[in-house]
């Protein structure tokens, strides 16, 4: 832990980062930007895991490992998402999320 910084400050930073990511997910129409927003969200969650591990249960490394696993999942998710985006681009000639609405009523 860092002397002089309370846990709340870390949590506030990760919270803001999380909701910035959520706002980006809802606002932006470009699929790649949305993907980046998702990365932001995942990253903020990662910070949370690590912080809780560090401040509350420093005798174990559970949060640390969880964060590593999340990084792995983020990598997998990014690769599949980008494959999908490229495929969508081939079909639609753009990657706007409004146009990906085949699965409506």
């Amino acid at each position: 832990m860092i002397e002089g910084i309370p846990i709340q400050h870390f949590l506030i930073v990760s919270t803001l980062m999380f909701f910035i990511g959520v706002a980006g997910f809802i606002m932006r129409r470009n699929l790649i930007t949305i993907l980046m927003a998702i990365e932001l969200i995942l990253n903020s969650v990662n910070i949370n895991f690590v912080i809780f591990n560090r401040y509350l249960y420093p005798d174990q490394l559970q949060g640390h490992f969880f964060a590593i696993l999340v990084v792995g999942i983020a990598a997998a998710e990014a690769s599949v998402a980008i494959a999908l985006i490229i495929n969508i681009y081939r079909k639609l000639k753009n990657i706007d999320v409004e146009n990906v609405n085949e699965l409506r009523y």
Binding site: V22, F25, I26, M27, R29, V97, E98, V100, N101, E102, L103, R104, Y105
Partner: peptide
């Protein structure tokens, strides 16, 4: 109410959050 099933991903996300 079928209009709610709009196919717009971001609406879903908004509702979800």
């Amino acid at each position: 109410i079928k209009g709610m099933q709009s196919g717009q991903l971001q609406h879903y996300a908004f509702m979800f959050v």
